[in-house]
Nucleic acid binder design. Structure first.
Lengths: 143, 143
DNA sequence: CTTGACTCTGAAGTTACTACAGAGTGCTCA
DNA sequence: TGAGCACTCTGTAGTAACTTCAGAGTCAAG
């Protein structure tokens, strides 16, 4: 008789909020578990393994859609490593781009910050002036 | 007689979507402009300058709340450079933390990717196995 | 007048959660 | 048995910074 877990137990084991587990079920990342007579969710070891997988992917900043794709590949006997590799490669490329952007942003900020080395009024602030002078680029470098 | 701009003109000048300009007004980052007889918004040069400021700050990944604070400092004759510096420093520290996180994430991904150098079925994929084996950390390194 | 581009407002959607409200369950202890 | 507390349930709304959609009005040119 395989043991089962209530949602709070599972949440503590995997270190994830209860609400997030319910959210993943709604988003169909986690299958619906069995229920107790009192309608409490009863999770299996397989559920726990799947949740661990999802959280590990999230820690690698993969989107829920990407994770869903990986889960499908994992369960499809016809799929290959090639498809997994491709998905991971795309994700790496995206993260690489975002790292470069964040570093540029950091440099821009430090450059801006160096404009001000004295205590003046905000009306004369070289930082604020700098924010007016430059042509803005397309924002959202961090997302 | 200072010229005024309709919203589409302003949007093109500053390279920002029309909907975003309206959004900034709703969020009270931009003051309500005058209106034409047909209820069209009529923006001034001051509006345009303010919008440029906002977009430059966004390009530095500052939150709307931070930008609002800067705008208030800019307009308050009692405020000092010190307050601007403090805000920028806090933001730089935040961005620095996020860059470091993103770099760790990139390394983790590349490490994971190196596990797979052959074409096997997904059922035997070393990447997928790696996503099951490791203990997940708290996600959201990128936000 | 018609047409097409533009404008308006309000509401809803995006992503990945998170919090809240109100009601039900289960377990322990007196 | 009943109380009390921790836990669970569902549905809804909120977060940040937008973005899209629907339906209606304006404006300028042909």
């Amino acid at each position: 008789m395989a043991r089962s877990y209530r949602i709070g137990e599972l949440a503590r084991q995997v270190d994830v909020p209860v609400a997030t587990i319910r959210y993943y079920e709604r988003e169909q990342l986690l299958p619906k578990p069995n229920r107790s007579a009192g309608n409490f969710r009863l999770y299996s070891e397989a559920h726990r393994d799947r949740l661990v997988f999802i959280r590990q992917c999230r820690s690698l900043d993969m989107t829920l859609e990407e994770i869903s794709s990986l889960l499908k590949l994992k369960e499809d006997p016809q799929s290959s490593c090639e498809q997994v590799n491709s998905l991971i490669d795309d994700h790496i490329a995206d993260v690489t781009r975002r790292v470069a952007q964040m570093q540029r942003l950091k440099q821009d900020l430090e450059s801006l910050r160096r404009r001000c080395d004295s205590t003046r009024s905000a009306g004369e602030c070289a930082i604020l002036a700098g924010l007016l002078a430059a042509r803005p680029e397309r924002p959202h470098p961090g997302d």
